[in-house]
């Protein structure tokens, strides 16, 4: 009987309506993406970067080729030549094909010197496929990113939107 009355008076429907009404005046969860950048976790695996020694400005990469070997997609190509004086391998070129990248992070995991690193920069869209292959300059210095509209207000937009370097 109670169930019948509940049915007649739409109790189930009204319960749902009450919930949705409650949420109508609730704080919204939307992130206004291009204007409001999400705060990504430190470990986030985004755009690759080839780190330089902050003091000397020289590359940390010792051209050991481990990243190229561990990469499941074989998309890293490390070019090196042997320095005739020190008998050490010196990095000459480094290409990283982001179009094929799985962002699995194996390269940065295996890197003995923390030279290759996947950063929190996630805006990798470009207008051409060729643009997706990153060479050494771009890996070291960042790139001329496509402007999504967020940086328009600041003159030095690209600088402001680059994420802070990892600390941990």
């Amino acid at each position: 009987m109670v169930n019948f009355l509940k049915r007649v008076f739409f109790v189930d429907v009204l319960a749902g309506l009450a919930l949705t009404l409650k949420y109508t005046f609730h704080r919204v969860y939307t992130e206004q993406y291009p204007t409001e950048k999400p705060k990504l976790a430190e470990r986030y695996r985004g755009a690759p970067r080839l780190n330089n020694d902050p003091e000397t400005g020289e590359t940390l990469c010792i051209a050991c080729d481990l990243c190229a070997q561990v990469c499941p997609e074989d998309l890293i190509v490390v070019g090196s030549e042997r320095d005739p004086d020190t008998r050490k391998k010196v990095l000459t070129t480094y290409t990283f094909d982001t179009s094929r990248c799985l962002f699995c992070g194996l390269c940065q995991e295996i890197c003995p010197t923390n030279a290759i690193e996947l950063t929190q920069d996630f805006e990798l869209a470009t207008y051409s496929r060729r643009n997706m292959v990153w060479d050494r300059t771009r890996l070291e210095q960042g790139w001329d990113r496509i402007d999504y509209g967020a940086d328009r207000e600041t003159a030095s937009g690209r600088e402001s939107s680059r994420y802070e370097r990892k600390t941990g």
Partner: peptide, 8 residues
């Protein structure tokens, strides 16, 4: 509907 669904 957006505000019901806690979005904008």
């Amino acid at each position: 509907i957006a505000h019901i669904q806690v979005r904008l």
